[in-house]
């Protein structure tokens, strides 16, 4: 059973990931493939309870102006060493009006959680077998990182001068 977490605890996962559109959509909250949503936006918005998941090789430009009212967007990591999702996360959070939850799915391991949170992810569907409790330690690896990112609006060289 895969654990869903955020940076403070283990969460209940009440979204169903629809990997491929076969015939009928499941009931309840569903995460559908982004291209399918783009083609069927009116119907899906009328249905409600719909979020989208982005493949790691997605061309993001067509989506950025359309996603403001979605409750949940997931970015898929096909392999943990494929880091395209980090840039996608920052663009979704920083170049659109999206204000919902951004989730990392796929090959989501522990040692990458710190970077993922910094890039704007809010929740993480851990790879099967990983402990949600243990994962929580991995959000505080570094106390004061150098760079600005989605979590810190200023780089260290501005932050520490403000502090002083």
């Amino acid at each position: 059973m895969q654990k869903l977490i955020n940076d403070t605890g283990v969460l209940d996962d009440n979204w169903t990931l629809v990997e491929d559109i076969e015939s009928e959509l499941p009931s309840g909250n569903i995460l559908v493939p982004a291209p399918y949503w783009l083609d069927n936006r009116d119907a899906l918005n009328a249905r409600g309870n719909v979020g989208i998941w982005l493949a790691s090789d997605v061309e993001l430009a067509p989506y950025l102006s359309l996603i403001s009212s979605l409750p949940l967007i997931a970015i898929h990591f096909p392999a943990f060493a494929n880091g395209r999702g980090y840039s996608l996360a920052r663009l979704v959070k920083e170049r659109s009006d999206f204000s919902g939850e951004l989730r990392a799915i796929g090959d989501v391991l522990l040692d990458q959680l710190f970077f993922m949170r910094r890039c704007g992810f809010d929740s993480y569907l851990l790879k099967d077998g990983l402990s949600g409790q243990k994962a929580l330690d991995f959000f505080s690896t570094f106390t004061d990182p150098y760079q600005l990112a989605n979590d810190l609006p200023e780089p260290l060289f501005r932050r520490k001068h403000t502090a002083a």
């Binding site: 980090y86 920052r90 150098y146």
Partner: peptide, 13 residues
Amino acid sequence: RQWSTFHPEFAFL
């Protein structure tokens, strides 16, 4: 060096 050290977006290029 400081900017690139643990840059969260560019650790898996």
